[in-house]
């Protein structure tokens, strides 16, 4: 019994310090699974190396000066105020020219190709998915397949009120993830119904704003099946921190099966035209939980906060029902 309790305590500590537990390299992004994310990681590693070298050289000169040219050691100051000899001019120009080469050759050329690659959303796209941000949830549409659903945060209220959450996917779990096929280029269209949101999944190397009234586009091509998590990255009000993004990448046969099931379920739902009162109540409850509960209490009072304890206190003129 004691042993078990110790085990629980120990594993809690481990989940609280996963970075230490898994000894993840703190300089690296989350594991990349798309071409863009891999390219970005390569660029990131290259940049970090370059700026680490630049910083070390600059800091080295500073440290050398600070140690070598101390007045307390009786060092006499030189009097120069500009480069004088051609050699000194050349030495002065060297760091500047190095910067230009780093900017426009080392960084500039790969960056040029990366921009063009990222902008090419249409070529060979096998699937189109539309992502719509709303305060504070994501809606996913498969326009050609006739499927659409809303993806809500599903972390329990107890976890959020606990003060010491233990759920390993705390605030990164949704009721219905976006499902995408592996190995196919997926064109992602983004828009919003209210304010600007941003759809960010670190493993995909993609962050694209969803602007109300306009369509933006980006693309992903996922290497391997798995569950990938991200968050909204543009402040959109009180629930901004509570609209996670979860993508479930499936191998093509699994994806096809999921698609067929989802289409059947959608067709069944559409076929039902008359509902009994208990069914209506159940549907209403579901709809309330999915759409309304984030902003409105069952009492009709307005609430903007995902934290229930603060609801009574917060009043918003524009969100009052």
């Amino acid at each position: 019994m004691i042993k078990q309790r110790k085990l629980i305590l120990g594993s809690t500590c481990l989940t609280l310090v996963p970075q230490l537990a898994f000894a993840r390299n703190p300089f690296e992004f989350q594991t990349p699974v798309t071409p863009i994310a891999r390219e970005t990681l390569y660029v990131h590693d290259l940049f970090l190396t370059i700026i680490a070298v630049l910083f070390s050289v600059g800091f080295g000169f500073l440290l050398f000066s600070v140690i070598r040219y101390r007045a307390s050691r009786g060092h006499r100051p030189a009097l120069f105020s500009a480069p004088r000899t051609p050699l000194q001019w050349a030495l002065s120009a060297l760091p500047i020219l190095t910067l230009v080469v780093i900017d426009y050759i080392v960084m500039g050329i790969p960056a040029y190709h990366a921009v063009l690659t990222l902008a090419n959303t249409r070529e060979d796209a096998a699937l189109v998915v539309k992502v719509t941000g709303s305060q504070w949830r994501w809606r996913y549409d498969y326009p050609d397949q006739g499927i659409s659903f809303i993806s809500n945060l599903s972390t329990s209220q107890e976890q959020r009120d606990s003060g010491a959450p233990t759920d390993p996917n705390y605030l990164l779990e949704v009721d219905k993830p976006l499902v995408l096929p592996v190995g196919k280029k997926v064109r992602v269209l983004l828009t919003s119904t209210d304010v600007i949101h941003a759809w960010w999944i670190p493993s995909f190397g993609i962050k694209q704003d969803a602007v109300p009234g306009f369509l933006r586009e980006t693309w992903v091509k996922i290497d391997r099946p798995g569950i990938y998590r991200g968050q909204c990255a543009e402040l959109g009000g009180g629930g901004h921190g509570f609209m996670p993004i979860v993508v479930e990448a499936k191998a093509q046969p699994d994806f096809d099966k999921w698609l067929a099931d989802a289409q059947t379920a959608a067709a069944q739902a559409a076929a039902v035209t008359t509902l009994s009162k208990p069914e209506l109540l159940k549907r209403g409850q579901q709809d309330y939980a999915t759409y309304c509960a984030l902003c409105h209490q069952p009492t009709g009072l307005a609430c903007r906060a995902p934290f229930r304890r603060s609801l009574a206190a917060s009043r918003s003129p524009r969100r009052r029902p």
Binding site: V43, L48, I51, F59, L62, A111, V115, W200, G205, K207
Partner: peptide, 26 residues
Amino acid sequence: IVLFGIGGLTGLVLADAVADQQYHNS
């Protein structure tokens, strides 16, 4: 010089429009 140097050098990285997809608003 040291701290602003770090700020400037990391700014160099942020200038890359595609890598900025990872850095921006993080």
